[in-house]
Design a protein around this nucleic acid. Structure first.
Lengths: 121, 121
DNA sequence: AAACTTGTACTATCTTCGTAGTACAATCTG
DNA sequence: CAGATTGTACTACGAAGATAGTACAAGTTT
């Protein structure tokens, strides 16, 4: 998986899990580039892409921040549409491998049961 | 999406939906290549890949056929493992976009309800 | 065995993608 | 305003991927 994709996912994940708080400043393009031994442009592109999708907010000369409202601003209709598309893709891909939507549901529920058990112990 | 991927999915889908019956012969590499305005090698690669994964069976001088037992031969453990991996990937990707596994389940169930309604009408 | 049909191996070319380098522009701070 | 810090535009290089062309091998049919 390309560097830029890894980084994108890592940042999204950090935000979703709360490891990056809303409003928090991210490392400088150069800082992160040095730390990850990567070109600054690679980081910059990730930041730019995440800004386009409303996850980050960047102010020149200041830095890049976790956008105040992203998942919040994504209102109910948007969320539903995005989720719908995502699931449609999943269903299609699974279908090509011979699994039905019901198979997916079943597997997801098994997963959930396993997780709750883990948390209880 | 590259040609070979499109073709692969199309064939898998045709098999899963029964449009291609088990044991049925597929078009010749060249036939299909002409029909799709594509190089024969592209088709050949798809056939070869699908053979490797056990979906097709090819006999030189004769043709390529839908393998008698593929989804059948994939026993219960295999199926479970494959499905598990698939769903894990889905969950991870959805998580990066801020959706929980429960969101996925909910959406899948909504989808199912819609489908059954369509079929009843 | 000869002719034909099938899939396959090898190679070349073209394109796309990812990353890096360099130079630039915008903003802040003293 | 001067200098520092931030992100950005443009370019180029390298690698990987996808497709096509040609020639070959395995099998069937007559």
């Amino acid at each position: 998986m390309p560097l830029y994709a890894q980084l994108t996912r890592a940042i999204q994940f950090a935000i979703v899990t709360g490891r990056l708080q809303i409003g928090e400043q991210l490392p400088t393009v150069r800082q992160l580039a040095v730390e990850l031994r990567v070109n600054a442009n690679t980081v910059a592109k990730v930041y730019a892409e995440l800004e386009r999708s409303g996850v980050l907010e960047t102010r020149r000369g200041v830095g890049t921040f976790v956008c105040a409202r992203h998942f919040e601003a994504r209102n109910r209709q948007d969320s539903q549409a995005i989720l719908g598309d995502l699931v449609d893709r999943f269903v299609e891909e699974a279908g090509a491998m011979g699994f039905s939507p019901d198979d997916l549901i079943a597997q997801l529920q098994r997963r959930r049961k396993k997780e709750t058990k883990k948390n209880v112990q």
